[in-house]
Design a protein around this nucleic acid. Structure first.
Lengths: 118, 118
DNA sequence: CATTGCGCTTACGTTGAGGTAACTGCCTTC
DNA sequence: GAAGGCAGTTACCTCAACGTAAGCGCAATG
C-alpha cells in the first residue's frame, strides 16, 4: 500500500473523482439530457427537436448538438436528396447511458421526497 | 393511455427528465463531489477540507458547504468548547449517492476509452 | 414573386458560477 | 503584544453559459 502520506491519498482521491467529473461534463448543463431524450423519443429533425423542447432556441440547440456529436452520443446524417434533409439519431453508444440516467432519475425522485415530502 | 397527442407526450417527457436535472443540480458543478468525497474520507474541519483540495478557496468552500447542508448531505456540528470547534460530517443520507456515483464513475472511465483510447 | 419552412449563424446582452485578495473576530502561542 | 491559526466574510473581477433578435441561403408553395 502506498497510501501512507497525505499527498498520495489526496492525489488518489482526485484521480478517483475525475471520471465522475468527465461524466457530468457530458451529461450536465441545462439542455443535454433533454435534447438526448427528445432525439431518443423519435424527434430527428432540427426543427422538430427545437419545438419539442419549450424555451430552447436554435443557437443553443446547434451548439448542444455539436457537443453531443463530439461525444458520440448522436449522429448527424445528411441525406443528399433535394431538398437536403438532415437527421439526428442516437447512437448505440448513447444507450450505455441508460443505467446512469436511471440511477440519477431514481435518486432525484427520492431526493424530492427527502427534502420536501416528509 | 393518454399519450395520444404531442403536447401530452412532451409534458410527459419533461416530467421524466426533471428528477435527473434535480440530481444533477445537487451533485453537479465543479466542487461538490470533490468536497463530499473529502469529507467522507475523514476531513472534518474547514481548513482541513480546504487544504485537502488543491485550488479550492474559502469563499467557494463556504458556499458549497451551505449547499450540501441544505441538501442534507452533510451536517455542520458546532462544539461549544473554547476555542469553538466546527466539524462537517457526511450524513447517512449521503451514502444513498453511492450507487449514482459508481455508475457515473464507471461510465466516465469507459467514456475516456471510447473517445480517446483505440 | 411573396411567403413559408428548413437548418442553421451572427451580433449582441445578461447572468451566475467561480476566482482573487484582503480582512474580520476570536482564541492561543511565543 | 506580535504572530499565527481557525472559520469564515467582503468587495471586486472574469468568463463562459445561456438568452434575444434578426438574418442568410436554399427550396417549395401559393
Amino acid at each position: 500500500m502506498l497510501l501512507t502520506d497525505g499527498t498520495t491519498k489526496q492525489l488518489n482521491c482526485l484521480a478517483q473523482v475525475q471520471p465522475i467529473r468527465d461524466a457530468l461534463d457530458v451529461v450536465g448543463g441545462k439542455w443535454k439530457v433533454l435534447i438526448l431524450t427528445a432525439i431518443m423519443q423519435g424527434n430527428r429533425r432540427f426543427r422538430e427537436i427545437e419545438t419539442s423542447i419549450p424555451k430552447l432556441n436554435p443557437k443553443v440547440l446547434a451548439k448542444e448538438l455539436k457537443d453531443l456529436e463530439e461525444h458520440q452520443l448522436i449522429q448527424r446524417i445528411v441525406h443528399d436528396d433535394y431538398p437536403v434533409l438532415i437527421e439526428y439519431v442516437a447512437t448505440d453508444y448513447a444507450r450505455t447511458l441508460k443505467k446512469v440516467m436511471l440511477e440519477l432519475h431514481d435518486w432525484g425522485v427520492n431526493h424530492r421526497k427527502q427534502v420536501f415530502g416528509k
